[in-house]
Computed example of a mutant assay.
Amino acid sequence: MRSVLDRAARAARGVRWYVRELTDESAYDRYVEHLRTHAPDAPAPTRREFERRRTDRQEGDPRQGFRCC
């Protein structure tokens, strides 16, 4: 029974990872990791600040990708 639960938990983690990558929800985590590696003393923005800056950049530069809404 334990191995069935372990496999189910592993599958759920895999699905979660895939969905986060597909929706780019993990972008903030990657950015903070990059910031900690390359500029450890720099303050990390909040997720809200990060998303606002990213949205502003995308809307200001059409090469950043298509935004329908």
Rank of each mutant, 00 (worst) to 15 (best):
R7W: 02
V15F: 01
Y31T: 03
A44V: 10
A39Q: 13
D61I: 03
D24H: 03
H38L: 05
R57K: 11
E59T: 10
R7N: 14
E25Q: 15
V4K: 10
E59P: 00
E33W: 04
A12W: 01
R2V: 01
Q64C: 11
V15G: 02
R53V: 11
R30E: 05
A39G: 07
Y28P: 06
R36C: 00
A42S: 15
R16Q: 13
T23H: 04
D41N: 07
R53Q: 15
P62L: 04
R36D: 00
R52F: 11
L5F: 08
T23S: 15
L5R: 12
D61G: 06
V32D: 10
R47K: 15
H34F: 09
V15R: 02
R13N: 02
A8V: 03
S3Q: 14
Y18M: 06
R10L: 02
T55D: 12
C68D: 08
R47D: 00
G14D: 06
F66Q: 02
G60V: 05
R36I: 00
D29F: 00
R52G: 10
C68A: 05
A27V: 03
A9K: 06
Q58F: 03
A11H: 13
R63D: 06
A9R: 10
A8T: 06
D6G: 03
R2I: 02
P45H: 10
E25F: 08
E21Y: 14
S3M: 13
R20H: 09
R47E: 12
L5M: 15
Q64V: 02
P40R: 01
R52T: 12
R13P: 01
L35T: 07
C69D: 03
V15T: 02
R54M: 08
E33Q: 15
G60R: 04
C68I: 08
R7D: 12
G14Q: 11
R47A: 07
R53H: 15
R52E: 14
S3D: 08
Q64M: 14
D41I: 02
R10P: 00
V4E: 08
D41F: 00
G60N: 09
D41A: 08
R52I: 15
A8L: 12
E49W: 04
G65T: 00
R30Y: 05
E51V: 15
V15I: 02
A44F: 09
E25V: 13
R48V: 14
V4G: 02
Y18K: 09
R47T: 08
R20W: 06
G65Q: 05
E49G: 03
C68T: 05
E59V: 13
G65M: 07
M1W: 00
V15H: 01
Y31G: 07
S26P: 01
V19Q: 11
M1L: 04
